[in-house]
Write a protein that binds this DNA or RNA. Structure first.
Lengths: 159, 159
DNA sequence: TTAAATTGCGCAATGC
DNA sequence: GGCATTGCGCAATTTA
């Protein structure tokens, strides 16, 4: 799970409240409040003059103590959480979709099987009838003409 | 791939207190050294005397300078990467599966449509033939011979 | 230009 | 004891 010391309500915390402050508060009773070691990376622009539209370089490295910095961080943390939740939800939805589609496919296959069977039966009937006609109408073959029902057809219709 | 030299300040924290720890992330492609304060919960054993099985408490606070610590971290980072890659791969596979199933679905539906049509045609032929029989056979009670229309069937080929 | 969303990454807790 | 998962925060990037 996550950090035990961090009380993380499912609902988003009110804007303007820092998580770090929450944690600090959580152990406020404990002595020796620690201070954040702050390392500020060198300003990127130190190297060469950027060829950008006049007037503005990149960004100042964002002071960590800045109120605005904390605010941005917190907003981003929120956004990240949201994004991740969505991502997970989407994954689950996709999985579910797979299941649904699988089911649907089985349904369709069953239907195909049924239709095929029906078709096969009808075709057999046709053939049988055709044979009967042939036997009755064109009795060219010498022999009994009235007795040749041809009981079972050859079962046409593959698939 | 190997970690760039990460200068982590020797922030030795007193046991039993939360502290903000620095974290650095750097990539070869995107060199952007970041020093990120991270919250570390207090050592759990700090509170009261724990009644645990003999001889073993939980863990020593894991010296961040320790060689073994760095090794563990690095291994874990590797494992995390691997796990995440798998996770993403799985998600993509699932998505692909959805696509395949959708395709299959369409195929099946088309087939059903075709079979239905064939069936419909055959049934119509049957009906038509039945009518013809009724028309030809009913009025003349004599024999069942005479004109037998029975045009050649459309010979619907399955598949 | 700014704010939100996404993405890669490391840390730590926890599961196995 | 070690790898695998998971939640989380930071920061760089991308998108709107």
């Amino acid at each position: 799970m996550s950090r035990p010391s961090q009380a993380k309500p499912t609902t988003a915390e009110p804007p303007g409240v820092s998580v770090i402050q929450n944690q600090a508060a959580a152990q406020a009773a404990a002595p020796a409040p620690q201070q954040v070691p702050q390392l500020v990376p060198a300003h990127p622009d130190a190297a060469g003059g950027k060829a950008l539209p006049p007037g503005k370089m990149k960004k100042p490295p964002a002071d960590k103590d800045s109120e605005e910095y904390r605010q941005r961080r917190e907003r981003n943390n929120l956004a990240v959480k949201k994004s991740r939740m969505r991502s997970k939800q989407k994954a689950m939805d996709t999985q579910q979709r797979v299941n649904e589609l699988k089911e649907e496919n089985e349904r369709l296959e069953a239907k195909i099987k049924l239709l095929s069977k029906e078709l096969s039966v009808l075709k057999d009937l046709f053939l049988e009838h055709a044979h009967n006609l042939a036997d009755n109408v064109a009795p060219a073959a010498g022999g009994a003409e009235g007795a040749s029902p041809a009981p079972t057809g050859p079962a046409p219709g593959g698939q």
